[in-house]
């Protein structure tokens, strides 16, 4: 097991170095980085000084090495727009994005799994067909449209929930949270629904399909022949067996929720990394873009590692094969 984790960690490092290379090469693609820092009338010598100070006269591999070294220490350089360290900028905004993403993922799981189980067990009930129809809307409507509709109904017409921003936040040192204030929680609802709706319907459909598959298996039939309670067959034996694919999808989706919260954040003016990133793209702020790229890659790698470990918690067969593989 330990060998398996070490091997996966090593793979993760390789992935991160590759992504680092891509992030690093972004600096080169958009012209001379010195031009991004200086103004038009900076004298030549000063430009050379800056070039030296930035280490841009070193050979490219050395520069890459230095970049990765700094990145490993969470130093991604200084934003061209804000003249502030990128790490500080991202650090300020990350809590907002992560809270939104986890709220959306929680919503998707907490609603999606029960709905999936229900529609699988009561395949022909009216409520099931209703859920299935709604889920079709969920998968097919684009995020921005859902966001606008929700805002129109709940903010403009009913006036129940704020239409933008994060509400009041509480500062906990490195982390600012909106989860401790009423206005923060209220502000979270609409963006979380917007971001989570697609995932929720995806999970619901996945759970339904898997559950139907599992209910047809021999061991469920055998469990019935053993006279176990229907409840424990459905929620013990069947549900546990549907979880492996659900964990995979949830893991992958959590990564994309974090990475692609952009639209939701933009529509709701949510002060997260997505808005920061969009601004960076508009202003060719390479350090922010590169750091964002590496951060997202890091999250995907981490989530995947966690997903692999969760498999072995759920499925004992994988524990053996992991031991065998190492």
């Amino acid at each position: 097991m330990l060998a398996f984790i070490l091997r996966r960690l090593l793979q993760s490092v390789v992935v991160m170095i590759t992504v680092g290379l891509i992030a690093f090469s972004m600096f080169r693609f958009v012209g001379d980085p010195v031009n991004q820092v200086v103004s038009l009338d900076t004298p030549r010598e000063q430009r050379e000084q800056i070039r030296k100070a930035m280490g841009l006269d070193d050979p490219v591999p050395i520069q890459f090495l230095n970049y990765m070294k700094r990145a490993a220490q969470l130093d991604f350089g200084i934003s061209y727009q804000f003249r502030t360290p990128v790490t500080t900028l991202i650090g300020e905004r990350m809590p907002a994005t992560l809270e939104l993403a986890f709220a959306a993922a929680f919503l998707a799981l907490a609603v999606g799994i029960p709905m999936g189980v229900y529609t699988a067990l009561r395949r022909h009930s009216v409520l099931s067909s209703f859920f299935m129809t709604v889920s079709l809307v969920g998968v097919s409507l684009p995020t921005f449209l859902i966001a606008i509709l929700l805002r129109y109904v709940f903010s403009v017409q009913l006036g129940w929930l704020p239409s933008f921003g994060r509400g009041e936040v509480v500062n906990l040192g490195y982390w600012t949270t909106g989860l401790l204030t009423l206005s923060g929680l209220k502000a979270l609802i609409l963006p979380a629904i917007t971001l989570g709706l697609f995932q929720m319907t995806l999970i619901m459909r996945l759970v339904r399909a898997e559950m139907l598959e599992v209910l047809r298996t021999d061991y469920i039939r055998f469990a019935r022949a053993r006279g176990l309670r229907t409840r424990s067959i459905h929620f013990g034996h069947a549900l546990k067996n549907t979880l492996v694919p659900v964990i995979t999808i949830t893991g992958l989706q959590l990564g994309s929720i974090i990475a692609f919260a952009l639209i939701t954040e933009y529509v709701f003016q949510w002060p997260g990394m997505g808005v920061l990133f969009l601004g960076a793209v508009q202003n060719v702020d390479i350090p922010i873009m590169a750091a964002y790229l590496m951060l997202i890659a890091f999250m995907f790698v981490t989530i995947n590692l966690i997903v692999d470990l969760l498999y072995s918690v759920v499925d004992p067969r994988l524990r053996t094969s992991m031991r065998a593989a190492t």
């Binding site: 061991y219 055998f222 546990k240 759920v314």
Partner: peptide, 12 residues
């Protein structure tokens, strides 16, 4: 049942 390989729940 016929197939002992599939009669038992693999996760328990």
């Amino acid at each position: 049942f016929q197939d002992p390989l599939t009669s038992l729940n693999p996760l328990y």
